[in-house]
Design a protein around this nucleic acid. Structure first.
Lengths: 279, 279
DNA sequence: GGAACTTTGTGCGTTCGTTCACAAGGTCCT
DNA sequence: AGGACCTTGTGAACGAACGCACAAAGTTCC
């Protein structure tokens, strides 16, 4: 197995064996195009036919120069002195993103989240269509959710092939995520959106993006902590674990803290550190 | 109103009125710390007490030098020649992320998604606790979900104050997201996780992160498109909208395309472009 | 105690991304 | 037709992030 990739395409990587230079649209730009698209759709709803980069930028919540540069990677679709034609720009961005075709998507794992995703009409916007639901629990097989029959995961290969699916969503418990990812790759899936709170790796050539609620929350908590307590941060409510920001590593003094175990970890023995690090 | 922020903290912004230089942990590092934390929890489960940066990096799916540099921002918690003590590192990262305290979280919008989130035990990992559920639909008020009573959105201020909540999750339909965000900010919320597929802006000082399924799918579609069709991309299945990558903007020739409207947009009149741009 | 070995922590060059600022190009009004 | 005005598209400066490569620091074994 070649180098593994984890995160969303990290700067396009080494672009794999197919040594395409690609048409050089930066990854950061690609990530913003859907946002512009949404802003543009909003303008359509309001019956606005033309918008300047400044107006669009405000709606999309970005810098106008950035927006112009982003759009310039697609071509020169604006009109100087006027701005961008909304419908035309929507078409161009959609085309660039590959939304001109209809992508069939499979959802693996029809638990709480998978169920919500399947029923969440809004998430499958123009360009996507839920084509299959799969689950490992045989009791679910045959049930209908969102108008689709749930199939057993063992039928994965047939389902993928039958529907020409290349994009799959993982919504299984964390411990099953890697296994499911492996099976998806074997079945020919080349793009995976992972909702399971687990680190999943895939072979090169397969794109993997993750949506992780607890990670997002933890990032928020980090900033929140800095806001509420000043620099010498202190614990507001919760266990006593007050320590200086960077205590002398040689002599940390006494402190105790709970053993932090994973979401689904077996309850680990509560550790106590009376030394910097256990000998 | 000051400058608006949209995305997750864009490089810490101008850091707001409280001109703290912060302890200079790069945003990119903060975003990875939760991943390391998860990797470490995995090691605890497997009873592994010590790990080198290389081992950790493989599990977390990152470069080992990057991991070491990330950890070095927190302090010198490794042992040369040995590696990192797993439990100790968990403690340090947790502390840095502010997970030593228990963050009460409110979920706004108990539809399909909100329901799933409330029941999704795994998402509220150590450090977080769902403290309140709110919805605008009065018929839901009083219902119990995940052991909590749903309250009406009009009670927001009291609920926030009662529970000392500073982090909220938006899981309402897109058209209501901005309104909800405004009310949250007014109620004193300073960190928001937005699940609604809508661009939301908040005043400076409030952190906003978004989790957007359709955006992630669209990014995947972009790469997928490049994989399947070579450089001169062609539409595989779907409407005929084949055009050269960058056609001469002066004379685009004839082409027609469907009018792409927003997920929840009113069906717009199908436009037809026989010119580069409608005069 | 000392030498061989392992792994951290980081200085530095490189790449990627953002923002400024302005010339080029186009519109609109007179 | 011509000039005032507006907005795009982009060169260039800046800044953040990445990853190599290595010295420093610790461990292990003899």
């Amino acid at each position: 197995m070649a180098t593994l990739r984890t995160d969303g395409p990290p700067g396009r990587g080494s672009e794999g064996p197919t040594g395409r230079a690609a048409s050089a649209i930066p990854e950061a730009t690609v990530a913003r195009l859907p946002v512009y698209l949404r802003a543009l759709h909003g303008l359509v709803e309001r019956g606005i036919a033309t918008a300047s980069s400044e107006e669009l930028a405000v709606i999309a919540g970005v810098n106008s120069a950035k927006l112009r540069k982003d759009l310039s990677y697609l071509g020169s679709y604006g009109t100087r002195g006027v701005g961008y034609d909304v419908e035309y720009l929507i078409y161009q961005i959609s085309r660039e993103l590959g939304l001109s075709q209809d992508w069939p998507v499979a959802i693996i794992g029809i638990g709480n989240l998978g169920h919500a995703l399947a029923n969440y009409g809004g998430f499958v916007s123009r360009g996507f269509r839920i084509a299959a639901l799969l689950d490992a629990d045989p009791r679910l097989s045959g049930n209908r959710v969102a108008g689709l029959v749930i199939r057993h995961i063992d039928e994965l290969d047939e389902v993928i092939a039958e529907n020409g699916i290349s994009i799959a969503v993982i919504a299984v418990p964390p411990h099953a995520a890697q296994e499911v990812a492996n099976r998806l790759v074997t079945a020919g899936i080349t793009s995976i959106l992972n909702f399971a709170p687990a680190v999943v790796t895939v072979p090169e050539g397969v794109d993997l993006r993750k949506v992780d609620l607890s990670i997002e929350l933890q990032i928020l908590a980090f900033h929140e902590q800095r806001k509420t307590s000043g620099l010498p941060r202190a614990v507001l409510r919760g266990p006593r674990a007050v320590r200086p920001v960077r205590e002398d590593p040689v002599n940390p003094g006494e402190f105790d803290y709970p053993s932090y175990t994973a979401d689904d970890a077996a309850p680990a023995a509560n550790a106590r550190y009376d030394e910097v690090r256990p000998a």
